[in-house]
Design a protein around this nucleic acid. Structure first.
Lengths: 167, 167
DNA sequence: CTAGTTGCAAATGTTTTGCACAAAC
DNA sequence: GTTTGTGCAAAACATTTGCAACTAG
């Protein structure tokens, strides 16, 4: 559930996440995109995609592999990676590289957002701040450059960890 | 040479780079930090650090290895990586992970800055925008979180490539 | 039937490490 | 003379790929 917080002049930060399209809607979109591309729907692809859409956010390939194994022990790592790439090519997922060795994946959201990553508990909080987005465009204009995309990640200690008082 | 560009209300973007501390100053700092830590100065460390400080910015380990080989063909890859880590531990370099497989390294600058990366020519432009920094702090406050560091990279087509008109 | 898909194992690319030898302090 | 550093080759790690067998359309 998104929630608005009052904030400093000209700033509005939205924290949280709109109710996501449900898993079956996304599965339908996946099947449609596959058909468009002349590719096949298979049991493995369905299992992987359904687990991915159902499980939520910021999952790693390793975690996804473990989850998929529970319902279909036969799938291999290669198929996980190939299906993740396919979902990306269908614009149904986004790949993120936070400060770890491995990539994390999230279902594409209608809304663009950036991330706050807690360095203590690892929690990833999504937020949206239009003022920052506008300033990024302004920077690009000053460079006479064309801005296509950006990456912004804030790292620190989340409110819960601070409240828990563990230093 | 830093240069100021006029910009939209409340925004000031600084592009470019202050005259860097010179190589010998940085070498002196390196030797001092090594002594503090009870570590040794060696020919290899000096060769690697001097090449790194002299060569400028955003170099990869591979490029640094090639450059160092020119003046000291005997050094190994492992020593490059070990010296890069050491320089990081001495706060004399920063490691960056842009959208490539390999890390890039830059000498620590007195000024914090972020990067614009041209997706066509690969050029990396540094900039500084205090308004964005303030808004990042504001986001953290709204999350009741403590902001420790951030990563912001803008990707697009740089002014030179646009002017060159290649689409 | 046939193009597309899978699992496995092997390859990849970057970075790290174990270890015997060498060099600083 | 210890302690720390080095080079090499091998390991680690996340991800990709070749290939023969398989399966959806």
């Amino acid at each position: 559930m998104p929630r608005h917080e009052p904030s400093a002049a000209h700033t509005r930060t939205v924290v949280g996440r709109a109710p996501a399209a449900n898993t079956e809607d996304r599965m339908g979109a996946f099947h449609a995109r596959l058909k468009d591309k002349g590719l096949k729907s298979t049991g493995q692809r369905d299992d992987i995609a359904r687990v991915f859409f159902g499980i939520g956010r910021h999952i790693s390939a390793e975690e996804l592999y473990a989850e998929v194994k529970k319902i279909n022990p036969h799938v291999g790592y290669a198929t996980i990676y190939r299906t993740l790439r396919l979902l990306r090519e269908c614009d149904l997922l986004q790949e993120r590289h936070f400060d770890e060795g491995q990539a994390r994946y999230e279902a594409t959201d209608e809304r663009h957002h950036d991330h706050f990553i807690c360095e203590r508990c690892g929690k990833i909080i999504e937020f949206q701040n239009d003022s920052i987005e506008r300033l990024q465009e302004a920077v690009a204009r000053e460079l006479k450059a064309e801005l296509r995309r950006h990456k912004m990640e804030l790292y620190g200690i989340c409110g819960d960890c601070l409240a828990r008082g563990e230093r």
